[in-house]
Simulated scan of single mutants.
Amino acid sequence: MNAQSVKVLLLQPRYKAGFVLIVEQQRRIRMLKERMLRSAGDFPNKTVVEYATVAAKLLHRDLPSNLQDKHCTDESMVSLSFSPTGRLTYKELFLDSIELANAFAEHLKTLVDKRSYNVEISVSVQTSTWTKRTTAKRKEHSEIVRRKL
């Protein structure tokens, strides 16, 4: 099969495999545009790892009941993170590129708009000296988020 016949197959809507191929190619192109954050050994301190995270700020009264703390007032601001599947959590999200974090934040904004409370979503780049844990979580969370998007 030459390139021209592949192009024709991809343009015909009855070939579902062609559509999947187009989507997969777009996903690869998007992944190539991502600039990976620095890993262990890239800093003067060899144990520092850089990661991107998506944070959420909201009022305590707007928290889901499973995340509420009985010692906080309703008007206090709470900082949380999102899990790789899009749920609010106190655990931190580790992503390996700022572009992936921004795309995930846009996806989360559409999810949060459907909910009854206001959430302020922000993306930041942070560093950690927990090299093994951060590197493992960064790889794991990034793969889950890429599949989600």
Rank of each mutant, 00 (worst) to 15 (best):
V6C: 03
L10G: 06
L10W: 01
L10A: 04
L10R: 09
L11G: 08
Q12D: 05
Q12Y: 05
P13L: 02
Y15R: 00
Y15I: 04
A17G: 02
G18A: 10
V20S: 02
V20Y: 01
L21S: 04
L21T: 03
L21W: 01
L21A: 10
I22E: 03
V23Y: 01
Q25M: 11
Q25P: 00
Q26C: 09
R27M: 07
R27I: 07
R28H: 12
I29Y: 09
I29L: 15
L32Y: 11
K33A: 14
M36Y: 08
M36R: 14
M36A: 09
L37V: 03
R38P: 00
S39N: 08
A40N: 09
A40R: 10
D42W: 01
D42Q: 09
F43V: 00
K46I: 09
T47Q: 13
T47R: 14
V48D: 00
V48Q: 06
V49W: 01
E50G: 01
A52Y: 08
T53N: 08
T53E: 10
A55S: 13
L58W: 07
L58T: 15
L59E: 10
L59M: 13
H60T: 07
P64K: 11
S65P: 04
S65E: 15
L67D: 04
L67G: 02
L67C: 05
Q68P: 06
D69P: 01
D69G: 02
C72T: 07
C72D: 09
C72Q: 12
C72E: 08
E75K: 08
E75D: 13
E75S: 10
S76A: 12
M77I: 15
S81N: 15
S81E: 12
S81H: 15
S81V: 12
S83M: 11
P84H: 13
G86C: 01
R87C: 07
R87N: 14
R87D: 14
T89F: 11
T89I: 12
Y90W: 09
Y90E: 11
E92F: 04
L95F: 05
S97W: 07
I98C: 09
A101P: 04
N102Q: 13
N102A: 02
F104V: 00
A105G: 05
A105S: 12
E106V: 02
H107E: 05
H107L: 10
V112Q: 07
D113E: 10
D113L: 06
R115F: 05
N118W: 06
I121K: 03
V123D: 08
V123F: 06
S124P: 00
S128Q: 05
S128L: 04
W130E: 14
W130K: 14
T131M: 11
K132E: 14
R133H: 09
T134H: 02
K137Y: 05
R138H: 03
E143H: 09
V145W: 03
R147E: 11
R147V: 01
K148I: 04
